[in-house]
Amino acid sequence: MAVTTIPVERKKKRFSETLKNYWLDIALFFAFIIDMNTRFTGLAIHEWLGLGFGVALIYHMLLHWNWIASITKRLLSRLPGGQRLRYLIDLVLFIDMVVLTITGIWISEVAMRQLGLSFADSFFWRRLHEQTADLAIWLVALHIALDWKWIVSTTKRYLWQPLTKKRPSRPTTAGGE
């Protein structure tokens, strides 16, 4: 009896992890797109959304920790080329995102002031913030492209199939409408 219940629980947990991962990825994508458009958000929302994005990225990494750890261990030994490329792109993306967030904090005019913090502003940090933001677009694009199969299959499973699933038709009563 116990043998049959454990796999079911594991299966359930794995599914919920995938779902959690999927919705977090969708939220991160939309947050990124919106946050990149400062004209649309205004400075205050841009800064707070950027900070939230940084925190969400840590959670995103936590969800993918097993993959990060296993690839890091095997990086110097035998590893498929695709995995190595993905790891390299993700590493560059991580560095870019950290620089983007940190320079954003350093040049912040609203969020940090509201938190009672102030940093020495400089044109250099602004320029670096802009350039890392530009680079982030291409890196995020590559990150999405390399995980495209997973995105499509998960979307089919959790969004498309529940929507297009045929519902059992209601039994009609004889002579009724």
Partner: peptide, 13 residues
């Protein structure tokens, strides 16, 4: 100080 109405250097948003 700017508030949360999305006002900033970039305009009103």
């Amino acid at each position: 100080g700017p508030g949360f109405e999305g006002r900033g250097r970039e305009g009103a948003g």
